[in-house]
Design a protein around this nucleic acid. Structure first.
Length: 423
RNA sequence: GGAGAGAUGUCUGAGCUGGUUGAAGGAGCACGCCUGGAAAGCGUGUGUACACGUAAGUGUACCGAGGGUUCGAAUCCCUCUCUCUCCGCCA
């Protein structure tokens, strides 16, 4: 959420920032703000008078004065106040809704661009392997090895769901454990196992609501949402709280399944593990001091990259341009993994600095030691990594001529010593 | 799911027969005094948000959330949420 005071005082600057992302007009909200403050001043004066008179009444009563005239006047005032209060509340609600509908302003250094074609490759790691046999896509490898079963997943639930079996299920779990181990033991994150359903306030806090309600799976009986990413429950850990400055930074990592309705609507990647309604992900979330959130973003991105380095799978890092940036993000690096069957890099992680955008929505603050004032902190998060896509990348990059898949060395321990899947 | 109790400031804990209560008392914390230093003791201070103001400051709101009654509500009424105890059910 943007700061209404900033919009008011630096309108031109904010408008310029929004223009980098699309068509947004600050006019209506400024008009609303103007009306709200006018009405507020008005009603507050009335309330002040109401308070003053109210304090006098006990004295009058003690003196045995007749108060009926005052009561009549105050009754009228009270009615006016009620009406104006309702007006202010209507302005507040409308303003909040509009404020929630503005995306974050991109960081000033982020390239201005239209769509993903304007994204900038930052670095590359590893060389895509050359195969001396006909390669298969991960869904064929998985089905042939009997470790993935898409048909039965469709029977059980429906399209865009998948089922892991035997060594497939084990590989999935191995990846989760390996990622959590690396982030906790090497990168010093604290593991969280959060609820997989969240309420409306949490979804609003991180920016999924109100604009993207259709993308989420909703439980009507409770008005809960299945988590689309662990970012939602974990970022909301500190919603409506004030932390001490010395408690910053805080790093959390969490495994959760992720549920997304939007997956599938695009009609792309209809086969395999790339785009499903349910997928597993290990997420990293940081709560940091505003002064060093950009260094924290660099570190976070490298924490995610580390997983692919240890698994020895080629990838590249891309900096998103303003047109491709997520709604709440000020700056984002995507990590893309090499996917042989696609013959290109495919997104496997997205690492973002939200600056104070989520913190303001979710009301997460810290107390500044020097001024003793509260300030919004900065939140960041990144996938570390999307497990389903990592699974797919392993099958494809580690496939062998005989149809089996060798297990990355770092994973064999988590695979109970297994070095080749399918043998 | 049924019955009952409760939700107040950083914490504890009054107020709940409606009227200087942002909210007693205590603890904690900060600063000052005292001390060789510390403890104890004494004194002062100690929430958030919004509006107006260059500022000092002033005003308004907030006692789980939202409504209502009233000239006036932390205090009365209704709805919801959460917590605790007992019962039922259950991995």
């Amino acid at each position: 959420m943007l700061d209404i005071k900033k919009i008011r005082d630096n309108t031109i600057e904010v408008q310029a920032g929004l223009n980098k992302r699309g068509n947004y007009d600050l006019g209506p909200i400024l008009a609303l703000d103007e009306k709200r403050r006018k009405t507020l001043t008005n009603v507050e004066e009335m309330k002040s008078r109401q308070n003053i008179v109210s304090r006098e009444i006990p004295k009058y009563k003690k003196e045995g004065k007749d108060c009926s005239e005052i009561f009549a006047e105050m009754k009228e005032l009270s009615t006016k106040i009620k009406d104006l209060d309702a007006e202010v509340k209507a302005f507040d609600d409308e303003m909040r809704y509009q404020l929630l509908s503005f995306p974050n302003i991109p960081n000033e250094h982020v390239t201005v661009g239209k769509d993903e074609s304007d994204n900038k490759e930052v670095r590359k790691w590893g060389e895509p392997r050359t195969f001396d046999f006909e390669i298969k896509a991960h869904w064929d490898i998985g089905v042939d090895l009997d470790i993935l079963d898409f048909e039965r997943a469709v029977k059980i639930t429906g399209a865009r769901f998948s089922m892991f079996k035997g060594e497939g299920a084990r590989l999935q779990r191995a990846l989760i454990n390996f990622m959590l181990y690396t982030h906790c033991m090497e990168h010093h994150y604290t593991e969280i196992s959060p609820p997989f359903m969240v309420n409306r306030e949490s979804m609003t806090g991180t920016g999924q609501l109100p604009k993207f309600e259709d993308d989420a799976f909703h439980i009507p009986s409770k008005d809960f949402f299945l988590v689309p990413t662990a970012e939602v429950p974990v970022t909301n850990i500190y919603r409506d709280e004030i932390l001490a400055e010395e408690d910053l930074p805080q790093y959390f990592t969490a495994y959760t399944p992720c549920f997304r309705q939007e997956a599938g609507s695009a009609g792309r990647d209809t086969r395999g593990l790339i785009r499903n309604h349910q997928f597993d992900k290990v997420e990293m979330v940081k709560f940091v001091h505003p002064d060093n959130s950009y260094q924290e973003l660099e570190d976070l991105t490298q924490n995610a990259e580390r997983i692919l380095q240890l698994l020895e799978i080629p990838y590249r890092v891309v900096e998103l341009c303003t047109g491709d940036l997520g709604f709440s993000s000020a700056k984002t690096y995507d990590i893309e993994v090499w996917m042989p069957s696609y013959n290109r890099y495919v997104e496997i992680s997205s690492c973002s600095n939200f600056e104070d955008y989520q913190a303001r929505r979710a009301n997460i603050r810290f107390r500044d030691i020097e001024s003793n004032k509260t300030r919004f902190l900065h939140t960041l998060n990144g996938s570390g990594l999307a497990v389903g896509r990592t699974f797919a990348a392993i099958l494809e990059n580690y496939q062998q001529a005989d149809g089996t898949v060798s297990v990355p060395e770092k994973l064999t321990h988590y695979m109970w010593g297994k070095t080749v899947i399918g043998k």
